[in-house]
Design a binder for these strands. Sequence first.
DNA 1: GCTCGAGCAGGAACCGGTTCCACATCGACC
DNA 2: GGTCGATGTGGAACCGGTTCCTGCTCGAGC
Lengths: 340, 340
Amino acid sequence: MAAIGDVARLAGVSKATASRALSGKGYVADAARRRVESAAAEIGYIASPDAASLVTGRTKNIGVVIPFVNRWFFGEVLEGIERALLTAGYDLTLYNLSERGPERTRVFEFFLARKRVDAVIAVGVDLDESEVAALERREKPLVCLGGTGGTSARLSVDDRAVGQLATEHLLHLGHTRIAHLAGSGARAHPDSVPGRRRHGFLDAMGAVGKVPSPADIVETEMTMPGGYRAALQLLGHPGPRPTAVFAASDEVAFGAMRAAERLGIAVPRELSVVGVDGHEYAEMFDLTTIEQYPGEQGRSAVEVVLRLLGEGEVADPLPDSGAPMPTRLVVRASSTAAPR
Amino acid sequence: MAAIGDVARLAGVSKATASRALSGKGYVADAARRRVESAAAEIGYIASPDAASLVTGRTKNIGVVIPFVNRWFFGEVLEGIERALLTAGYDLTLYNLSERGPERTRVFEFFLARKRVDAVIAVGVDLDESEVAALERREKPLVCLGGTGGTSARLSVDDRAVGQLATEHLLHLGHTRIAHLAGSGARAHPDSVPGRRRHGFLDAMGAVGKVPSPADIVETEMTMPGGYRAALQLLGHPGPRPTAVFAASDEVAFGAMRAAERLGIAVPRELSVVGVDGHEYAEMFDLTTIEQYPGEQGRSAVEVVLRLLGEGEVADPLPDSGAPMPTRLVVRASSTAAPR
DNA sequence: GCTCGAGCAGGAACCGGTTCCACATCGACC
DNA sequence: GGTCGATGTGGAACCGGTTCCTGCTCGAGC
């Protein structure tokens, strides 16, 4: 394989000059630069990132830790991150981790601690102190998107407000008994995403003097089958039922709609359903939802990471770092309506 | 940051011995090995992969090219690959590429051609010669999972047989007019996955002397909304309709079922639907499907890659390299039934 | 005419490992 | 007792870049 020494020799300059010519840093005469460039092209020279990393300490590679790739929100975030990194000339190393365990420890202590990545983006991960410490010890910038833990840069939507808004929408329609299909751990971890959404739900209910019965808050895995099972449990028994459901995600909402159909409950005539995400299927299911823009969120996370690494114009204004990411309520009449 | 020289000094040995002790290669006295190990632990030494790669030429990093992360099949494959690589101590660098274009060229010519990855796994990508050549030039092993192009290692299910089996199932039930919701490009690219499934469909129909009318084969994006729109087009008009549909994927099938519901067509009484994939939602939707096991497929791809890289026991028998990956027909009575 | 700094180029050190080679020791075997 | 192979160790070269430092040229300014 061609090395930079070969290019230099062919161009009749030293390695130092060839390096400067190709990287564009430092003084190089135009003529020399052109000779180096054409020499490089001629022998198909491609620089070894390893050698460069070794001396510069930069790898142009970002580690991304994400618990699922196959849930819509996470998949979209990942795609957004990937695209943004690629256009910035960065690689993305993927670590697909969910539950705590030896594997997860190994990734933080070993894989991420090596010199391989310049920084880490953690999406929807609840980090504990030791994990954050492992990164800090190696001075790796960390950007968190959703999830909890990690002190430095953090991006997220205001999940409490999201839960509140969704619930208020149902209240405005005149519903009085509203149930919540919450994500698992919502009660146990009030700071987690499901916890915050549940909190918003309770706030909105409390504001109009309602205290939901415990049976009207069901926790479930945030997937379609999870929503399906939870909704069967919530709606499947005889006797009075809630007339509206706030589902912690669109996928849960789809499952709930499917369960309602199975139970012969008409949506929205007998049951209103609202979700969260702006899932690409929401339109097809005619689901009222609070959209968030995961692809954009991923892109923003990359922006912040690059800024932390000192890339891009220093003059670039920081993106309102504190402010929550945008969301939008999208009402679709065939999933939410006034109660009978 | 601690370097191997520091470890060596602390242990009272040379760099060479420290390196041998830590890598386990070459002769090292037990006592020395223990001293080196405890010295390394004491100062929290972690080897720099860049330095090691520079001299060994191995990066312990595999590039994965995949067109979508947010479709079930691809997400599962990706998860399977990730897990298998992680346990083998490899990193995974993700390239999320679909359409041909300058970006895709850039990835093959530049990102993948550098020394950063030891090998490439391409999932569901139709590679052209120049792309394959770019990898061969750099002597990077390439394993393909689905998709077309690329001569070396290739894993896939027998998609023609899958299409045939699905269709035969419907024929056995007594259906005579069967439609096919095909993936886009099925007709134009007979070697692609959708093309092969369509081929199997036509074969099965042909074997009983039927030639489907062109209107009964609709091509669509292989997603739920795609299946929905295609099914509306197929079933939405007045007049006689097909009594069964073979959908090119489960997601398409879900969309079709949703469309049927919207049109007031009862499944399976008036319309049988069969899909392909074994999607995690298939059980909930009670969908008859031909399961394949994308997670397993990803794992197998990793196995092959590692073997090509000379990892693992040389004695390991090759996994029946030529044979197609397994599939299984799962009949669920509430999506397929005999016609009225 | 001299000084000074900008522009340009090359030699050499260096990043942090791995590996080749030379050398030393020691027990076994003839 | 001498030869041989297995075992163990260290010095030094090397992988392929980047960057520091030195030195040269040349035009501008005094």
